[in-house]
């Protein structure tokens, strides 16, 4: 739903900003968030709910870490790699973080291209974003297999509290699932953009209504969120 004005002739005066405008919007009829489509509003609310999911996961992890009786393994040692004979703590995680943050950049560019109706560029940038995402998941798979080969299991590990492995696999796994879903979603939307579905008014999936370019931005919201969550996981799990 675009922010169109069917009665543009007698359209209301421009809406004031600031606190006053905020109050007016909430007191108005029809919509609280003026000019915000249903899909976008829905994604924001969903992300709020998902924030609580990750929040509970992370708070649960922190409580366990503080209450467990065994010592907690030292993350920067566990996640270190030997590269060309040099010992580099957290190097893989640093690269993963870099990749994911870069993907947020290409995603933002894709949204911009979509609103300029540049189909090819949009689709290309979305595919690049998806590739960054897939790389991230790939590196995560590498990290998982490395830890597993070193003897880390959900129920125990060689260095200390069993909860280390449990929390690690659960939280990164849950986040990795989010990234994977995002990659799939990006590819689907990229294909639709490429094919021109949003110009031809072809009926979309999930809505049985014809889609709009805005779906690129909505996908982007999700993607940035997954990225942001990673920053918290990075800070709380790897750096602490």
């Amino acid at each position: 739903m675009e922010a169109i004005a069917p009665h543009a002739q007698n359209a209301a005066p421009p809406r004031p900003g600031g606190l006053h405008g905020f109050v007016l919007d909430w007191a108005a009829d029809q919509r609280v968030f003026k000019g915000v489509s249903w899909g976008k509003a829905m994604m924001w609310i969903f992300l709020l709910s998902d924030t609580f999911v990750f929040g509970c996961f992370l708070l649960g992890y922190m409580t366990m870490r503080m209450s467990t009786t065994e010592p907690w393994p030292n993350a920067s040692e566990v996640f270190a790699l030997e590269i060309f004979g040099t010992h580099m703590p957290l190097i893989l995680i640093a690269i993963m973080t870099f990749v994911l943050i870069s993907s947020s950049g290409t995603m933002a560019m894709a949204v911009n291209a979509a609103y300029r109706r540049d189909r090819r560029l949009t689709a290309t940038l979305m595919i690049v974003t998806a590739l960054f995402g897939a790389t991230f998941v790939g590196m995560q798979a590498f990290e998982w297999s490395k830890l597993i080969s070193e003897g880390v299991r959900p129920w125990g590990n060689p260095w200390g509290a069993a909860q280390f492995g449990s929390a690690f696999f659960m939280i990164t796994g849950f986040h990795g699932t989010h990234v994977t879903i995002g990659v799939i979603f990006l590819l689907i939307v990229a294909r639709k953009v490429w094919r021109g579905d949003y110009d031809s008014g072809r009926r979309g999936f999930f809505t049985s209504r014809s889609g709009r370019y805005e779906i690129v931005e909505i996908t982007g919201l999700y993607w940035h969120f997954v990225d942001l969550v990673w920053v918290f996981i990075f800070a709380l799990f790897y750096l602490w």
Partner: peptide, 19 residues
């Protein structure tokens, strides 16, 4: 999500939250 967005974004003309 449906219920929330319907209330927030899909009301009739004249239907303010406080009505």
């Amino acid at each position: 999500l449906n219920y929330v967005i319907t209330v927030l974004q899909a009301r009739a003309r004249g239907m303010t939250l406080m009505r």
